[in-house]
Design a protein around this nucleic acid. Structure first.
Lengths: 342, 342
DNA sequence: TTGAAAGCGCTAACAA
DNA sequence: TTGTTAGCGCTTTCAA
């Protein structure tokens, strides 16, 4: 490939159209207020012919506007993140904003690097599913541009928060499991580790337990250590098969790991063992029986973030202090926790 | 939030450090060849103190380098695309390149807009899972920067192609199903519609049929029209249960839609009905029984694209003409097509 | 109705 | 070893 063929510039357009650079610029920015039809047409023709496109970098340098928004998530592959990214991408594309996608891998250092790089990149706003290790930095950034914390809550001044009602929906699911007839609900989670969603879901579970006069039972796993799953399941294997219990996992990824192992136990679902998970991965309805889940309104979350930012960006009205939006998840009961069935 | 606080510029750093702008620039670009320790230290201190970060837009304007790569996929949510994006993102992040993610939704017009916008954005390279409707435009772009066509093959001059051996792996899977003992393999696909992967997988299926002296049976569905799935399954319901047949879907998304309907038929899998799919979605192993699948080396594909681009970008050695790389998929046999089992 | 000219923040010759 | 200067391509006053 023959690289670096000189790109067409506004100057060439101006020359060829026989007008000044400024006039072309005005034309491009639709400042037609007073511009002869002939000029317009002439410029249009040349733009067409040269297939000229203004250099976004140059435009940005002048006005400090990059027309770029960044989204920073823990893992680009998580269904939750994918869904958020899709929503943002769709809306921003319509508004002629570009979307920069970054991934922290739950690593605070990496997150810091990313945020600094975004600053250098002159992005106009940031949506971030934060690790919680850079709250101060995020606060500073939020003084310069819109920052939206999504999914996880942290004390960051000037940032907008968009979260779901984790405590309530977790409690609702747990309560339903007890009401359905499970004597015991075993909650399987990762180390909370400062992550607000994990803390909230756990709290919701615990609240429901105490409300139902039940003892909480926790199973701890680490997704990066398969042995933690194995030993949890080994414990379960030793149980008497008399009282039916339910397994409730704190997110879909845990269930994804755990499920094959649970299956190998040979316990009948849902009669001997109920199965439920937070998150509603697209495979939940493919399992036999289909899996009870808490479905988060991911598309709405993404859309809300996008609209918030667009609002902030055009209306220069700057709502000081932090805003917080809570969206509601839905409990989807399926056969995997239905004790009434045959 | 108090927007638009003046950002720190190189000039302020220079002033405060008592040196010239050029010296700061040299320092930033590690052109230490001859620079006194004191100067270095002084600049370092000021950079630190002001937490200065060079404006990427300005840097880019000068050298026409945006340090941005774009990836254009059909759908950000498809597991195949997610996997590619992740690989690209990881590698480019390491090299301090940013990744712009765009989505065409299989729409040629939208793809065209995106490509033009990327051109304006001065991206340095493009990875694209193309629709096939902008081959000429892609060819032109490929004269200015590296263009990698991924997944789908089209006649685009100067572009690198990265694909998998769709024909062979599809034939291999089909052949295995026949060998296993299924009298008939029903291939379920979407309209080929000019998409090379669909054509190849279909061709592979047909080849295997003829090699085994079997009649091909095609089921056509449209993912945007649920009724097509329903009517396909209705046909299957009328079959006598005597001869075992297998269903082989052209991709994971089709299987995802089809599976619940097939399940409702009540046919025993794998004895009365075998199930297999192209793609290896992460839920394949969660089904009962686990699903036979053709696993594409998505991570390798992404990595190959990334390395190709990085090579092209630094080594200005310009390999003229198109290159083509074929990576091999793997057939993963699971219980869903295992007729030997009890 | 149009154009000249001054930057935006940075890099890279070339001088000193 | 460091500084001066001329742009990169565009927007935006301010004049003409």
């Amino acid at each position: 490939m023959t690289m670096r063929e000189k790109r067409v510039t506004i100057e060439q357009v101006a020359n060829q159209a026989g007008v000044s650079i400024a006039t072309v610029s005005n034309y491009l920015n639709r400042k037609y207020s007073s511009m002869s039809e002939t000029t317009k047409e002439r410029i249009a023709a040349v733009v067409q012919q040269l297939s000229y496109r203004p250099n976004v970098l140059a435009q940005g340098l002048k006005g400090n506007k990059s027309r770029t928004i960044a989204v920073v998530v823990v893992n680009i592959g998580y269904p939750f993140c994918v869904s958020i990214i899709r929503a943002l991408s769709t809306i921003f594309a319509q508004q002629d904003y570009r979307l920069l996608v970054c991934e922290t891998g739950e690593d605070g250092e990496r997150e810091k690097k990313i945020l600094e790089s975004l600053l250098a990149q002159q992005v106009e706003a940031i949506v971030v599913q934060a690790t919680g290790e850079n709250n101060r930095l995020l606060g500073q950034i939020a003084q310069q541009m819109p920052v939206v914390l999504v999914d996880r809550e942290y004390p960051v001044s000037n940032a907008t928060q968009v979260v779901t009602n984790n405590v309530e929906s977790s409690a609702a699911l747990t309560g339903t499991l007890f009401d359905t007839g499970y004597e015991e609900v075993i909650y399987v989670t990762e180390n909370v580790n400062g992550v607000s969603t994990r803390a909230s879901r756990l709290a919701g579970y615990q609240r429901a337990c105490s409300e139902h006069g039940k003892q909480p039972t926790l199973g701890w796993v680490d997704r990066h250590q398969p042995s933690t799953f194995a030993s949890l399941v080994a414990q379960l294997a030793n149980r008497r098969a008399t009282t039916p219990f339910a397994i409730y996992t704190a997110n879909g990824l845990i269930m994804q790991e755990l499920y094959p192992l649970l299956n190998a136990l040979g316990r009948k679902v849902p009669m001997e063992m109920g199965l439920a998970t937070f998150d509603n991965p697209d495979w939940a309805k493919l399992l036999t029986p289909p899996l009870t889940a808490v479905s988060q309104p991911t598309t709405e979350i993404g859309e809300f973030c996008a609209h918030t930012i667009i609002g902030l960006l055009k209306g220069e009205n700057t709502p000081s202090g932090s805003q917080k939006k809570v969206l509601d998840s839905t409990v989807l009961l399926q056969a995997s926790t239905d004790l009434r069935q045959v």
